[in-house]
């Protein structure tokens, strides 16, 4: 009998033969770890890039979004739990789409990027890596939407083929990660710093859940950490919570709470703070941090107005706005 130790994420699962890792999809078959959902996505969709959410990365373009079953987190409020909390063998939909075919389909559908999303793409790492390599060869960008629960070395290697990431920072509290996500905070912070160091475009999302992580002092600490470790130009999205999965006992986040969080983050020094999941809110827009000019007006995932100069500056004061605007 040969056990295998998975080194991909901080869980470090020690998997006996015939069992799977905590993520459900990495299986020890005869002493060999198999990525059972490689080329077997269970969800495919064409999304606006704003849905990831990425507000400073190739706005108005489309992302060919791919996900397989499995996840290395077990969030009580997961909105894709039918996908993330099952193994590949439990899925009704199991498509056959090898990396080359993903890229071909993305081009056919006029997408400018491939997004690895919905469940956490960390667990289908090999599929992401091989697809991303081919996507680059075809001139497409790669977008990683993740909770960032991954070890440093695999992430460093993956960053070579990624262009942008939206990483969840679910709370700035170790206890929250343990109770709600079955995870820990430190590796997520490390992953954020690694992505910044590796030079991919990075945006951060914080889902604000009433009574669990809406403490303004904690939000301020989180924003200050982002300013110090990732830089003041890192976009931060405060997302509205809706009751989901095993957390149906809490109400949706009041918009006033999101606005207070927005104020705390701006006061802490972040230049680009957004409110997400609230249709038509003014803080879904991008404003120039220098003179307050409206730069990009959004409704939902749709861009209504776009006023940046071709080289990504405020049209009035010429302040450069960080992002990938081409």
């Amino acid at each position: 009998m040969t056990d295998v130790t998975c080194e991909l994420c901080p869980r470090g699962c020690v998997i006996p033969e015939g069992a799977a890792g905590d993520c459900r999809i990495r299986v020890n078959r005869d002493g060999r770890l198999v990525a059972t959902t490689y080329g077997r996505p269970s969800a495919i969709h064409i999304d606006p890039i704003e849905k990831k959410p990425l507000n400073h990365f190739r706005p108005t373009t489309l992302a060919f979004s791919v996900a397989t079953a499995g996840c290395n987190l077990h969030c009580l409020n997961c909105q894709n739990w039918q996908l993330s909390q099952h193994g590949g063998d439990e899925m009704e939909v199991l498509l056959h789409l090898e990396p080359d075919e993903v890229v071909r389909a993305a081009r056919q559908e006029h997408c400018q990027s491939v997004a690895y999303t919905y469940s956490d793409p960390i667990v289908f790492y090999e599929y992401v890596y091989d697809t991303a390599e081919r996507a680059h060869q075809a001139g497409l960008s790669n977008v990683f939407v993740t909770a960032g629960y991954i070890n440093r070395r695999p992430l460093q290697q993956l960053c070579r083929v990624l262009d942008a990431s939206n990483t969840d920072l679910k709370a700035f509290d170790e206890g929250f990660y343990e109770r709600v996500n079955s995870a820990t905070l430190k590796p997520v912070l490390d992953a954020l710093v690694t992505q910044r160091e590796e030079g991919i475009w990075l945006e951060v999302t914080n889902l604000v859940i009433p009574t669990l992580n809406d403490d303004l002092a904690m939000i301020r600490r989180m924003a200050k950490w982002i300013v110090t470790n990732l830089g003041p130009d890192t976009p931060l999205h405060f997302s509205q919570f809706y009751p989901m999965y095993r957390m149906r006992n809490l109400p949706p986040t009041p918009v006033e709470t999101l606005e207070k969080a927005h104020r705390e983050a701006r006061d802490a020094g972040l230049n680009y703070v957004y409110i997400g999941n609230v249709m038509g809110h003014r803080y879904a827009n991008t404003y120039c941090p220098r003179d307050g000019t409206l730069l990009i007006k959004r409704t939902g995932f749709h861009v209504d107005e776009y006023h940046l100069t071709p080289d990504g500056r405020c049209p009035l004061c010429k302040e450069p706005i960080p992002g990938v605007w081409q």
Binding site: M1, T2, D3, V4, T5, C6, E7, L8, V14, P16, A20, R26, V27, R29, G31, R32, L33, V34, A35, T36, T37, Y38, G39, R40, G87, G88, D89, L94, H96, Y125, E126, Y127, Y129, N151, R153, P154
Partner: peptide
């Protein structure tokens, strides 16, 4: 799972980032 792998419905692609440990 083995049956699904053998029939091609699940992949048999070897994963990266692991090492073997004798039980």
């Amino acid at each position: 799972v083995r049956r699904l792998m053998d029939s091609g419905q699940l992949s048999t692609q070897e994963a990266r980032w692991y090492h073997r440990t004798e039980a």
